[in-house]
Amino acid sequence: MTNYTLKVTEIRRETDDTITLCFKQPGLKKIKYIAGQYLTLIFRINGRRYIRPYSFSSCPGVDSFLEVTIKRVENGLVSNHINDMVKVGDSIEAMPPMGDFIFEPNDDLTDVYFWGVGSGITPLISIIKHILNSTEHINVHLNYGNKNQETTIFKDQIEALKTNYAERLTIRHFHTKLVLDEGNPYLIQGRIDQAKALSILDAKLDPNCCSHYICGPTGLKESVKSAIQTKFGRLINVYSEDFELVKDPKDFIDIHTQQIALTFEGKLHKLEIAKGKTILEAALDADIELPYSCQTGNCSTCKGKVMNGAIKMIGLTKERNDLEEDEYLLCCSHPLTENVQIEIQN
């Protein structure tokens, strides 16, 4: 995998705790991506390498820059570093675009619903711009939750889209900290829960003619999916982006602290994997710079081959049929036996 070096051309302030990094396309080898995918950035902070994936907020064919939007996370080392330290003119290493949270067109599609909270808007805005620009018949419905107007990322950009595509774009803002404005039916107080999602879905709509894109916390996904299931009797054309692994404590009953052997770049490492820690986390803590990207089991960057012993993947939200029987994603893998041997093949 060949990485890129991208130069920061502009830094756009979206909210008090969120910025957009605008990168100039490389001169020789242009970066090709699909709306909804993510760009993985690599940083060195105090001598240690950190890798973080950030969804594109730009749209190919619409925006001239490659843009990713980063919200400051409490105690988030990398997000705080980006918000505080990155400057215009800086060069940042990036991995090729990845991700399958992309628009899936079909001839019957008439309506696309987007459900997001906070920074979950990032891939959604990219896909929305793509649909509005590349189609003429698809109606777009954006349902977006925030604390208030001041914390709404892309507020001006969303309003501009509404002006330009008034007949096809419906926007509903959900604010948890707000004095209700009775004169604005598209400004709704509270969170996007199942009841509110149900009230938005048109009962006359054919579920085969609409699709749903969800990006936000687990509660949002559960609420929206429950509403879709209740309204239409089934889940169809529903896509979600996952920023974190969902771990059930019951999955760890048979997991214990174990020693493993890990071979990487021809060197053998002995690692202790504490219960609850993934093999990738333990390796990074030991300053072994394994390849990785999403850390949610959605890509294959951290794939390893089990040569001996048994391990278990925990927290996957999407079934992976592309892995061989002895291949595992180390970002969500935990040893089951004490004789585990893993090889990272370049």
Rank of each mutant, 00 (worst) to 15 (best):
M307P: 03
E167T: 14
F264N: 00
D242G: 00
S55W: 02
A166F: 07
T176F: 13
M307Y: 07
P96M: 08
K267E: 04
L77R: 15
R72N: 04
I127H: 08
Y292F: 15
A94Y: 05
N80F: 13
L161A: 05
N146W: 13
G309Y: 11
Q259M: 01
A197Y: 06
T337E: 06
T20W: 14
R168F: 10
N237T: 09
T263L: 08
E14F: 06
K87H: 15
Q345C: 12
K318Q: 15
N237A: 07
V62R: 15
Y4P: 04
P53I: 08
Q25W: 07
G120S: 03
K30V: 09
S300C: 08
Q189N: 11
L169K: 10
D248F: 09
E93I: 02
A310Y: 05
K225Y: 02
K71F: 07
F23W: 12
T230M: 14
S119E: 03
T163M: 04
I34W: 04
I153E: 12
D322C: 05
N208K: 10
P60G: 03
M98P: 02
G89S: 10
T20K: 10
F43L: 06
R72L: 14
A35R: 06
F101S: 06
Y165F: 15
V73H: 11
H175R: 01
L280G: 01
V88C: 11
F103H: 13
D248G: 02
L28M: 11
K32L: 05
Y292N: 11
V112G: 07
I288Y: 11
C332M: 12
F101I: 14
Y113E: 02
I131H: 02
P53H: 04
L6F: 09
S226R: 01
I171V: 15
H137G: 03
Q295Y: 08
I344H: 04
Q341G: 00
L330I: 06
Y38Q: 12
P123T: 04
L169E: 02
G36T: 08
Y239E: 07
P96I: 09
F103S: 11
R168P: 09
L220Y: 09
Q37E: 06
P335V: 10
L66P: 01
G116I: 01
N46I: 00
D63F: 01
N83M: 14
V112A: 08
L6E: 12
A310M: 07
K162F: 06
K30M: 07
I128C: 10
K247M: 07
L235F: 07
D287H: 13
K29W: 02
I92S: 13
C215Q: 12
E272N: 04
Q149W: 05
Q345A: 03
L330V: 06
G145S: 14
C215M: 06
P291M: 08
S91H: 14
I314R: 01
P207F: 02
G183A: 05
V238W: 01
E10A: 05
N133D: 15
K32T: 06
T20A: 14
G276F: 09
H173W: 05
I253Q: 12
A282Q: 01
L271T: 02
R48V: 13
D17G: 01
P96E: 12
D193K: 12
G297D: 11
L124W: 06
F154N: 09
I51L: 14
F154C: 11
I31M: 15
D108K: 11
I128G: 13
K155T: 00
R234V: 10
I171E: 01
L161M: 13
S211E: 09
